[in-house]
Design a binder for these strands. Structure first.
Lengths: 228, 228
DNA sequence: AGACAATAATAAACACTGTATATTTACACC
DNA sequence: GGTGTAAATATACAGTGTTTATTATTGTCT
């Protein structure tokens, strides 16, 4: 048999490949991702995958986009669960959901922020839409705080000249927010990311500083510094 | 020829293997590290490496230890260049040297904090000595600040009970510092690491926030929050 | 309905990788 | 000077991503 009849074929094979990839990433880690292993599990030959993804890197890119989307969904859900409430409370909720997602899906987190795939470099222009969206729940709340004049960031460095068009690209994906709100969101992101990345990767030496307590402290530090 | 005579042999082959590994990592990235490629460049066969490293992971561990040592050297050098000066100035110098090292050796930074080697997990107990030392330039200054009562961290979460012995292990490697100083150092580390890791990995979206300006802002934020 | 072209799979092969095993040789020591 | 050890090679195995050629199925056009 050279080609299976439509009855025995897997419907929506493109999606099935990604699902199997996620399953194997969850089981054995992102670094062990293997096209041949995926093909084995789907009872398919490896080159068949090339009908749906031009190469391994393209599959990884698709997975990263899904991961960003999943992270963004977490943050939007937590923001909207606090809809109508205090803006700072919404900010808190988003902050905690960032860590929660990383703890729930450490492999997805590593796929985005580690570099587990040999030789892989994410193509910025393909990934940007989902990456920008994943940050935009945070940006949206910061923007609201800015509008009601509760943002405090004296001496915050100005954006480099000549990048306005890049910002326009971002705007198209993530919403029409002020560039200052975006900058503040990025520094907040870098803070929570610092703590979460060390925790998830196991680089935090085991002195027993409680991860969630430390994280709560850092969230309150952020609020104390940037919100008035 | 099955074994080269001593004259044609490479002296200190263990060190030569690591050097070649670093050379290739600098050229083609940590993810492309290959025992066979190293062997080719040294004009030996791949299994010969197994006389010096039990497997590839052991070589990677040795490289990571070297990288931690290199990072620590940067920070100690910058601290000692400010010896006799203001403690806060020393803190600043250490902060900047952390980023500078990452920019000078992005591949080494990725080797430690990314996960570029498929299936590799750093053995904590082997890496801890050099990792602890690399943080201890910072810890030493924080400790001095604590002693002269210039440390400000109200509400900082307490260390979890039952980890005293882990801390003792750390003490043995990095110096006899107070556990509170160590905790403060860790949160400072997580902040600079958050910014640097996003910058080095290229995950900072290209809005043109000047990396070094943003970093300076963050360093001053840290000093403003924790030093009085 | 029949011819045809596009499509989606397989089969086989290539150049890699890390690693295990067996073999051979150079060297140091008694 | 023989012997044992250590350090290299040779060979082989199982795995990887990817390319090429082949083949059978499918949908479309006449």
């Amino acid at each position: 048999m050279v080609r299976p009849s439509k009855k025995t074929q897997i419907p929506n094979l493109q999606e099935a490949i990604k699902e199997t990839a996620w399953k194997q990433i969850a089981e054995t880690g992102a670094a062990a991702l293997s096209l041949r292993a995926i093909a084995r599990e789907l009872k398919i030959t490896a080159p068949a995958i090339y009908n749906y993804f031009p190469d391994r890197d393209a599959l990884v890119t698709a997975l990263i986009i899904d991961a960003y989307t999943s992270s963004g969904d977490y943050q939007f859900a937590s923001r909207d669960a606090q809809a109508g409430g205090d803006l700072v409370e919404r900010l808190r909720a988003i902050g905690f959901s960032y860590r929660q997602w990383a703890l729930d899906y450490p492999q997805r987190y590593q796929l985005i922020f580690g570099t587990p795939i040999p030789g892989y470099q994410a193509p910025m222009m393909e990934v940007l839409p989902s990456a920008a969206r994943s940050l935009s729940a945070l940006v949206s709340v910061i923007e609201e705080l800015r509008i009601v004049n509760r943002l405090n960031a004296d001496g915050f460095p100005a954006v480099q000249p000549g990048y306005e068009q890049m910002f326009d690209v971002w705007r198209g994906f993530a919403g029409d927010y002020d560039i200052f709100s975006l900058s503040i969101a990025m520094i907040i992101w870098s803070r929570v990311h610092g703590l979460v990345s060390l925790e998830v990767a196991g680089n935090m030496p085991p002195f027993g500083v409680d991860g969630s307590a430390l994280y709560r402290y850092e969230i309150e530090s952020i609020i104390g510094q940037f919100i008035k």
